[in-house]
Every structure is written in C-alpha cells, then in structure tokens.
C-alpha cells in the first residue's frame, strides 16, 4: 500500500515536471523554430538542381544521406543473418556440415 502511494506521488511529480517542460517548447509550425534552419531550406530549394528528383524525401534518403541508408541496409542484413542463423539452423541439418569430408 505504501509502495503504491509512493509510486503515485512520484509519477505525479514526474508528470508535473514533464508538463512544465512541454510549456517551454517552441510553438508547433513556427517559422522561427530552431529546426527550421537553413538546412531544410537548402534541401527544398535546390533539390532539383542537385539531384533532379521531385521527391525530396527520396533525394535525402538516397543522395544527401546515402551513408545513413547504407547503414540501414546493413542493419537489415545483420538482422536477417541473425534470424537465419538462430531459427533456420535446425531446418536443414547437414546442409552446411559437410566441410570435414
């Protein structure tokens, strides 16, 4: 019982702090926000000149930040290697164990 009361008070305190911090955040959609810097303007203004592609999202994914996408592809690859190693190991026993011959 005491634990529950303590947990409730703690959660209320934490919620108050978080709500207070939310009120300090910049207004949504304000052009003066820190996220609306010259970088996004550069992307939207000169994407046709740079990449010659109307889809800005694809241009950012595969051109401006292609390194990042290469990393994502590697993450997918690592994940599938792990899944195939762990879960498909029993399905074809003997297929990969002929090395000692």
């Amino acid at each position: 019982m005491l634990r529950q009361i303590a947990a409730t008070i703690l959660i209320l305190l934490l919620g108050t702090v978080l709500l207070y911090m939310t009120s300090e955040m910049p207004r949504f959609g304000d052009p003066g926000n820190p996220s609306n810097n010259e970088l996004s303007a550069r992307y939207t203004d000169e994407v046709i000149e740079d990449v010659n592609v109307p889809n800005i999202v694809t241009a950012i994914i595969t051109d401006y930040r292609a390194y990042d996408t290469l990393g994502e592809a590697t993450v997918l690859f690592a994940g599938i290697v792990a899944v195939l190693t762990v879960l498909a190991a029993h399905s074809d026993v003997g297929r990969g164990t002929k090395k000692d011959g």
Partner: peptide, 28 residues
C-alpha cells in the same frame, strides 16, 4: 529515368526490405 544513382539505390532498398519482411515473418 532521372535522378542518377537514386533509382538503382531505391530498387536495391525495395528488394531488400521485401526480402527482410518476408523472411522475418516466415521464420518468426
């Protein structure tokens, strides 16, 4: 047929994501 490397890279990503989704689903 524009965009230089964007098109082949998008193709590679698409094939890879499809393969990953299918393989993860069938094994899990």
């Amino acid at each position: 047929f524009t965009g230089g490397f964007v098109t082949p890279l998008t193709l590679a990503i698409g094939v890879k994501v499809a393969s990953t989704v299918i393989t993860l689903f069938t094994h899990l």
